[in-house]
Write a protein that binds this DNA or RNA. Structure first.
Lengths: 158, 158
DNA sequence: TAGAGATAGTTTATATATAAACTATCGTTC
DNA sequence: GAACGATAGTTTATATATAAACTATCTCTA
């Protein structure tokens, strides 16, 4: 559908720049909703699955909450609740760092490992289904454009 | 920066599809943060400004909370709190529909109109600055790619 | 070695978001 | 006209997110 109709605008968008921006914002918002629905099948949220994937990559050493907050680009105060909830579900645990008691090493439990492996398979299938609506050159173009935008944001102090 | 480094991945991304998806997700997340910082200058959030813009377009008739929830693609229960907070700041008000008391017509107050007009000017300048990192053909390509993705999501029941 | 500063994590207050259960109002149908 | 069903908005419980103030721990330096 055309963006103007989707946004229920009375007038066409005046600027191509605004149209491109709203395209991105609207699309990522809808992707978020699709993602929510997908992960809720497994009793997870997208953020929770992301954490499980990150922790899987870091094995038995895990990551500190500070490191996790940098991976997720969220504040450390947010990570507290995220780990609380994952710990409540017995998917991860906090382990005290042996030589520096300020750190929690967050590691997957066996239950967390099993769930991650199971969800990951379905996840990559869904990703392929969605992204294959784009041609290879479109994908390259999107990746390049997104990189330019991120560079702008980083240069402007994010 | 390369996505792999930004995401602090130990291994390169296996699939181009996943890379394209994470490009989008990461970029919109950073855009959200830039947006937060921009609007906080004016004591607003991005969602609040979006509501003010939508209401401006609908003048003295305003929109019901149900209609607003459709514009914003959020649930009506979310809209309750959004309007509560904007009403607390005297930016909008709830007006009972004259012939159907189930409806609230949400309209801008004079204070809300003034703020919207002021913020809008800066907003469009920022949008131009950011999106002009893309060439005209890149913008067209992004708009087209995003439309394809949204079509996929709509077809898959969102 | 005592104190100062840095770092990791937590708490609190607030904003955004959902789903589900609820109230109030309106329309339709019998 | 009373009952039923649909619609609009609210409330509650929960998840994600921030900023700011806090505690605990560690490190460095005077």
């Amino acid at each position: 559908m055309r963006l103007q109709q989707e946004l229920k605008l009375k007038q066409p968008l005046a600027s191509v720049n605004h149209e491109a921006l709203l395209s991105l914002v609207r699309t990522s918002s809808l992707m978020q909703k699709l993602s929510d629905r997908f992960f809720s099948q497994f009793g997870l949220t997208d953020v929770q699955f992301n954490i499980l994937m990150i922790l899987k990559e870091h094995g038995s050493e895990g990551l500190s909450q500070q490191e996790l907050s940098e991976h997720l680009i969220v504040t450390k105060s947010n990570v507290v609740g995220l780990i609380d909830r994952l710990e409540r579900g017995d998917y991860v645990k906090r382990v005290s760092h042996p030589s520096d008691r300020r750190f929690n090493q967050i590691v997957l439990t066996p239950k967390g490992q099993k769930l991650e492996a199971k969800v990951e398979k379905s996840y990559f299938k869904e990703v392929d289904k969605m992204m294959n609506v784009l041609s290879p050159s479109e994908k390259r173009s999107v990746v390049k454009a997104m990189e330019s935008i991120r560079q702008y944001i980083i240069d402007n102090g994010a």
